[in-house]
Amino acid sequence: MSPTSLTPPLTLLQRLDLALRCMTPFVITLLLALVPVLPLHLPHEIDLVPAFTLMAVFYWTVYRPDLMPASAVFAIGVIQDFAAGAPLGITSLILLGTHGVVLGQRRLFVGKPFAMAWAGFLLTDAAATAVSWAFASLLAGEPLALGQSLLQFVVTLVTFPILAWFFVTTHRRVLARV
């Protein structure tokens, strides 16, 4: 039943190596949460960056849900909101929602062509955009301008393949035998 009984016990270094490898998805996502805050000196009109954490949570929930537990998702959302000075709680709610829904549907994506995952991400991105806009408007007490949200939706969708390629590479290099 348990595969560990067939393999010899791990040395300390091997355990450490394994632990670090297992933490990779979380650490990458955490760093991605800080990227939006970097001064990129963009013009004010397009001063937004793709929702990197949404992509990361989507990818790792689909392909390695064991390494992206709900608690990690929550922590990433909270840290992102604090770092950006954004209204608290919205990002963690969005990311948790994504995690919860995707976890139930991941069989649709695992082992299927990338287009399928991209289509799934389109729906996720759309839902996340709508929900975050709704909550941000609710907290602000007035409907917010939709332009920025829509732009972010598109930018996020378009950058997803690039980030996904990066995740796949990491996945193969670091987590191949984990």
Binding site: V35, P36, V37, L38, P39, L40, L42, D47, L48, V49, A83, A84, G85, A86, P87, I90, S132, W133, A136, A140, L144, Q148, S149, L151, Q152
Partner: peptide
């Protein structure tokens, strides 16, 4: 020195 700005769609602030 400005060391960060917020790239979110809902907030405009700098660090």
């Amino acid at each position: 020195r400005v060391m960060g700005d917020s790239g979110g769609a809902f907030v405009r602030s700098i660090l």
